[in-house]
């Protein structure tokens, strides 16, 4: 029995290790490529260990940029991406927590109709309604602005649904106890509902931050100025060059940098995030 279990453990570990290697190897390769000079990366004989150009490459890409394609230092793009991702994540949380509160706790005419209309927008992501959305944003003079980047992506039903499901698990007696304790609708929201929603909010924040950070199509459309471009678009621009050598070491450094904020968010909120998705605290 004991032997069997050890064998089972061993097999499990081997499979896991293979999985980790498959996932981690490209990341490692990216990192290694970002620490050599251009000629080493391009000649196809790049070693699998980090080279001596780490500081130089990262300093160059962060504060100067590539020589031909994107022209802007990556630090500015990271800032753009960060502002967009934060605006999307926080905006979504704000809107969906309020709309879910209205849908679950208020009895108003066409309440369910309102809910279903929100629900149906799940079938209409930005990609589907991209032309009309672009037209509206451009008519509102929001091209090349943070508002234009974030607002169309804020509107979506996922958050509302998540909060609705969570609110419906909160016992009605809590609301009634609050009423008797003299808490009005806003106080109940602030003193009871929000504190109970912390883990759900954290989960939604992580998901939406990464969603916002990884946006490609929409920022590509609404930003034309180099100073407004996001890091994801920059990577793409860096590796497609018609008349110059791709500066692979810089593109790879940018890719590494693009990974950092989402990784940081996940690690920082991991505990709350898992709790929010798995357990409901009541």
């Amino acid at each position: 029995m004991v032997e069997d279990r050890r064998l089972g453990d061993l097999i499990a570990y081997i499979i896991l290790t293979i999985g980790v290697l498959i996932v981690a190897f490209p990341v490692w390769l990216t990192f290694v490529a970002s620490t050599w000079d251009a000629s080493t990366v391009i000649n196809g004989e790049m070693p699998l260990y980090p080279g001596p150009y780490f500081l130089e490459n990262y300093k160059r890409i962060l504060f100067v940029g590539t020589s031909s394609t994107t022209r802007e230092p990556v630090i500015g793009m990271m800032l753009n991406s960060f502002i967009m991702a934060m605006a999307i994540a926080l905006g979504k949380i704000f809107i969906s927590v309020l709309s879910a509160y209205a849908v679950v706790y208020y009895r108003f005419p066409f309440r369910m109709a309102a809910f279903w209309i929100i629900f149906i927008t799940l079938m209409l992501p930005v990609e589907v309604r991209i032309f009309p959305t672009f037209k509206i944003v451009s008519d509102l003079n929001m091209l090349d602005t943070y508002q234009g980047l974030a607002i169309p992506l804020i509107a979506s039903a996922t958050g509302t649904l998540l909060f609705r499901q969570f609110f419906m698990t909160i016992p009605d007696e809590l609301l009634e106890a609050s009423k008797i304790d003299g808490a009005g609708p806003f106080k109940f929201f602030k003193d009871t509902l929000l504190p109970l929603s912390i883990t759900t909010i954290a989960a939604l924040f992580v998901i939406q931050f990464i969603y916002g950070w990884n946006q490609y199509l929409w920022p590509l459309l609404v930003t034309t100025k180099d100073s407004m471009q996001t890091i994801v678009i920059a990577i793409k621009k860096m590796i497609v060059t018609a008349d110059a050598l791709t500066e692979w070491q810089l593109a790879m450094a940018t890719a590494m940098l693009a990974m950092l904020p989402p990784v940081f968010v996940v690690i920082a909120m991991q505990r709350l995030f898992v709790k929010g998705l798995v357990e409901t605290e009541k």
């Binding site: 007696e173 809590l174 008797i180 009871t192 109970l196 605290e281």
Partner: peptide, 11 residues
């Protein structure tokens, strides 16, 4: 009022 499931504020 005292409720059946106590309805204490969990947080």
């Amino acid at each position: 009022m005292v409720f059946q499931n106590y309805a204490l504020y969990p947080h």
